[in-house]
Simulated scan of single mutants.
Amino acid sequence: MFAIDDLRLLVTVAATGSFTKAAARLNYTQSAVSRRIAALERRSGGALFDRLPRGVRLNPAGHALYRHSTEVLDRLARAERELAVLHAGDGGPLHLGAFATANIALVPAALRALASTRAEVEVVVTEAPTDTLMTHVADGTLDLAVVSDYPSGLPSADGVTTTPLCRDELFVALPRDHRLAGSSTVHLAELRDEAWLHSAYGDRPTLLADACARAGFTPRKIIRIAEWSAKFGYASAGLGVALVPSLAARAVPPDLTLHRLSAPTLHRTVYAALPTTPLPAALKLRALLHETNGPQPA
């Protein structure tokens, strides 16, 4: 019903108390201001100003519209400032998603570096599996996501571009009293009789199943545990062994040891996923993620 320019004109006339002064401030003619105020009053259903011998002043209806006009114009000004900050990459909200183990060391280190250079960027973090994260980048819910191709390959999503960040080697976690705990590397076939602590991926193919098949055996027993803290607890109790990505090495408790696998070697690739038109702050964070290395076991 009301154009933004008309609301600005109303506020300016009210501030100056004169059609002539408002025209000079807005670079209009006095007659143009009079015509536009008259048109605004018709749309409003009645007069908005009392015409005085010298100038004009708001009447009760004018005061009501003036109050709403200043609120609308203030919100628009704040929106313009926020968008300018967002497009400059210097502040505003940044919605970030990551899978669980990326949040142990990789993502926090990059966010710490971002905070030191872009302190006004407000990061909102979501943790979810890779397929969910890719969907949220595609639908605009996330501005950036850290995803991986484990266990079933990197899912594709329309309007999402992915860039490799790092190669994440998978190790095996053993309790310190395990018979192989003193070995620097372990052949996967040496663990053929162990129970494996593994995330609950249902019937989808997994890297563990494929690796065991290439090593010539099928896991004797799989205990389905999704959370890393629970996996470590079970492994510490000697109830099973677990594959642990190097990104999660910092979270491994001291009563477990990590060992490289001599054959077959296992790894996944970690990616940054961005929408087609990313925010500058998202691009900056992606660069910082490139520079951040997850902790590697000795």
Rank of each mutant, 00 (worst) to 15 (best):
V146Y: 08
V147K: 07
S148V: 00
S148K: 05
D149E: 07
D149A: 04
Y150F: 13
Y150S: 03
Y150R: 07
Y150E: 06
Y150W: 11
P151N: 13
P151S: 05
S152N: 13
G153K: 04
G153I: 04
G153N: 05
G153W: 09
G153A: 04
P155V: 07
P155N: 02
S156W: 00
A157R: 09
D158Q: 11
D158Y: 02
D158H: 08
G159L: 10
G159S: 10
G159P: 12
G159Q: 12
G159H: 04
T161E: 12
T163D: 12
P164F: 08
P164C: 06
L165Q: 08
L165I: 12
L165W: 01
L165N: 01
L165G: 14
C166G: 08
D168P: 10
E169C: 01
L170S: 08
V172I: 10
A173F: 06
A173D: 09
L174C: 12
R176K: 12
D177E: 03
D177A: 03
H178S: 05
H178Y: 01
H178Q: 02
H178R: 01
H178K: 05
H178F: 00
R179P: 14
L180S: 09
A181L: 13
G182K: 00
S184T: 15
V186F: 06
H187N: 14
H187C: 08
L188D: 12
A189D: 14
E190L: 05
E190G: 05
E190S: 14
L191C: 04
R192V: 00
R192S: 15
R192P: 12
D193F: 04
D193M: 03
D193A: 10
D193Y: 04
A195D: 07
L197Y: 03
L197S: 04
H198Y: 07
H198A: 13
H198N: 02
S199V: 05
A200N: 15
G202Y: 02
G202A: 10
D203M: 07
R204C: 00
R204V: 15
P205M: 06
P205R: 15
P205A: 12
T206Q: 06
T206Y: 05
L208S: 01
A209V: 09
A209T: 09
D210Y: 06
A211Q: 07
C212D: 07
C212Y: 06
A213Q: 11
A213V: 00
A213N: 02
A213E: 12
R214A: 15
R214K: 13
R214D: 15
A215Y: 04
A215T: 09
G216P: 02
G216Y: 13
T218L: 10
T218A: 11
P219W: 03
P219R: 10
P219E: 04
P219T: 06
R220M: 03
R220E: 13
I222T: 15
I223D: 05
R224G: 12
R224Y: 03
I225P: 04
E227R: 13
E227D: 14
E227Y: 02
E227I: 00
E227T: 10
E227H: 12
E227V: 02
S229N: 13
S229W: 10
